[in-house]
Design a protein around this nucleic acid. Structure first.
Lengths: 205, 205
DNA sequence: TGTACATCAGTGAACGCGCGTTCACTGATGTAC
DNA sequence: TGTACATCAGTGAACGCGCGTTCACTGATGTAC
């Protein structure tokens, strides 16, 4: 194969990217991690995937569409991480603690992504049904754990909201730097959570 | 006074605005309420206060400086609303419930402002010492209430974090529309909070 | 009371920027024959 | 196996926009005498 043919061959592969859609989402996650929400523009993503700035429009209706897809990936990973961390734990309290720890850890490790997932802009995106479904997975994990107790469905529902609120509040306060762990003499997230959950542990039987 | 003189007189009052700084903050609050965070630009605020787009720079170093001042106003109002709602209540549990209700209500009534107050961009703004101080008032209100119980200072500190997390989480989940009150058959915020706080009410003695 | 002057809040024009989105197009691909 | 053709992912140039910030300036104000 001649050098020119080789170039043409490369060109061939370059022209039709192969999986630009996934590449864009992956690039978005990387940009979020490195530059935060403000650095996230379609043009940047296009450049990052080696493609013209108009190319993303072949895969996403507009920027919101791309954002929704990124958020959905985020929710999937969050749920996965929570599920993994809680496997093998049988005590309800221990499972809850692990779920919460995974939640906090995910958010801390992916601050801008977490911010995007729970941003108000995204609330408008209930036009994206699969996103809503994926977003519900974390809730479902907590709810399923709590329903192992002997309690009415309604009781479980309210306790789920409470746990999720506690978890989400703790997480956002940490992520947004309104609470500093060191401030409370907590060595790590797990200890801090255990301590914070302690007051109402009686409920988790 | 002649018509011309009157115009000059008006002009006089217009040129030196009088209290542009306050006017800008007030305008910002209005814009946030009506258009949300995205509509908030210095140019818009300048126009809203009837002033040139460069005028704000006489009162604020840059946009962040203005944003910090707006957020501080928000924190002041939040703390005020919380303190007002809790006065006259002596039971710790009742006070906590009222403080939480005020917190949620404030956030729901001022979604974009609340969003700004707790946004990560603002976290970088710890260069604004008075802002940090004002932001701590809500925490202080909860902490003061809880310290009325018979418990160690450390115990109080952790319970404060827990209550604040619960409160803040519940609030943001409601504001960001991840939780719908109706979904849980709650008639109003107070009932919902009472129900959510119930599980660990034993701690609040 | 009247005048000279320093101060500084606000003007108006301009800067450069990155953004989302559109458009007519072209090149690569896979399929039908 | 080879050719014609429809499809559509990606190109490259351009659109209009609003933004934060700067700059030399000017007009109003209050103070010192």
């Amino acid at each position: 194969m001649s050098a020119v043919a080789e170039i043409v061959h490369q060109k061939k592969f370059k022209y039709h990217h192969g999986d630009l859609r996934s590449a864009l989402i992956e690039a978005a996650l990387a940009v979020l991690r490195e530059k935060g929400m403000d650095g996230l523009s379609l043009r940047v993503l296009a450049k990052a995937t080696g493609v013209t700035q108009a190319a993303p429009y072949s895969h996403f209706r507009d920027k919101d569409d791309l954002l929704a897809a990124v958020a959905e990936t985020g929710f999937q990973r969050l749920a996965l991480q929570m599920a993994e961390e809680a496997t093998g734990r049988n005590s309800v309290q221990e499972r809850i603690e692990k779920l919460m720890a995974a939640y906090v850890r995910f958010a801390v490790a992916n601050k801008p992504l977490f911010q995007l997932m729970f941003s108000r802009e995204l609330a408008v995106m209930k036009d994206y049904p699969t996103l809503a479904m994926t977003a519900g997975k974390s809730y479902a994990l907590i709810s399923a754990t709590l329903s192992k107790r002997q309690a009415s469905a309604e009781d479980t529902r309210f306790l789920t909201v409470m746990i999720w609120s506690l978890c989400h509040g703790l997480t956002t306060l940490i992520v947004d730097e309104k609470i500093k762990l060191e401030q409370f003499g907590a060595a790590n997230i797990d200890a801090f959570i255990r301590r914070t959950v302690a007051p109402f542990s009686g409920e988790l039987v």
